[in-house]
């Protein structure tokens, strides 16, 4: 008696979690004519890919995607370059700063973004960085930094310091030891941090909304939201298609890390 009930409950969850996704996909595959039909159906009558082509034809969306790409790439590179030395120091020397970085991640959760965004807007304005991509990149770097530091120092800690010392004993200088021995072992961690920073920036909406007022410099999340403003039913197809395309980077990222998310990572993070 228990098992069937459990399967029924599981089915309920699968339906609740899955149906909006199916609907997004279905909308993305429908022709404009079918979108206008009075009784929408789950499965498109004759699925087409033209919505994806139409999304690529929208200048705003393509421009937004390109600007998002620029900001996210710059943000991830800058974050890792700035965070690498610091994370090395945090992992190898025990300093109060490492605790502060983690503490800041936790404490900053309590403050609503409005308390930070207003002064931040004033700072950026005085630097003439409002409505510019470098301005947004700086903001993104700042907000990715604490978590990136915490991630990276974990990876540095995993590289046995004996390896480094052995290389030094073998006559290699400290820099050579770092480049030859530590860097290759650290590469996967660096890639993971790059990806994390890229996704955070690519998906970010709040700061972009405030920093980029001018539609000519809008990033992808902003253009997607604006796209719905002109709520023509016919345009919902391309919107769904563009939304799906915008999700690909983070889906790929999660596909890579999901195994660790499901088990170890979170367990360790919670029990600390």
């Amino acid at each position: 008696m228990r098992r069937p009930l459990q399967y029924l409950a599981l089915l309920g969850y699968v339906v609740f979690l899955g149906f909006p996704l199916v609907w997004l996909l279905s909308t993305a595959l429908k022709t404009p004519r079918e979108m206008a039909s009075l009784h929408p159906t789950w499965i498109p009558h004759n699925p087409v890919l033209s919505n994806f082509a139409d999304a690529f034809g929208e200048q705003d969306l393509v421009g937004g995607a390109l600007r998002s790409l620029v900001v996210a790439t710059a943000c991830s590179l800058l974050t890792v370059v700035l965070a690498l030395p610091a994370s090395y120091a945090m992992a190898r020397h025990r300093t109060a700063l490492s605790k502060l970085a983690v503490g800041w991640v936790l404490v900053s959760q309590i403050f609503p973004f409005i308390l930070i965004i207003i002064p931040l807007f004033m700072v950026l304005r005085s630097l003439d960085l409002v409505n510019t991509l470098p301005g947004l990149t700086l903001v993104h770097v700042t907000f990715v930094m604490p978590f990136a530091l915490w991630m990276l120092q974990g990876y540095v800690r995993a590289v046995p310091r004996e390896l480094e010392e052995a290389a030094a004993v073998d006559g290699a200088g400290r820099v050579v030891a770092l480049v030859r021995v530590v860097a290759p072992l650290l590469a996967p961690g660096v890639v993971a941090t790059l990806l994390f920073a890229f996704i955070s920036s690519w998906n970010e909406f709040l700061f972009a909304l405030v920093v980029l007022k001018d539609p000519d410099v809008a990033t992808l999340p902003l253009t997607l939201v604006k796209f719905t403003g002109a709520e023509g039913v016919v345009r919902l197809g391309p919107l769904a298609a563009a939304s799906l395309l915008a999700t690909i980077p983070s889906l790929a990222f999660f596909a890579i890390i999901q195994r660790r998310l499901r088990s170890g990572l979170m367990a360790g993070a919670v029990k600390g």
Binding site: V225, T228, A240, A246, S250, F254
Partner: peptide, 11 residues
């Protein structure tokens, strides 16, 4: 979790 918040809203 893997979806951008904006896309969740639009969906």
């Amino acid at each position: 979790w893997a979806m951008p918040p904006v896309v969740i809203g639009l969906m």
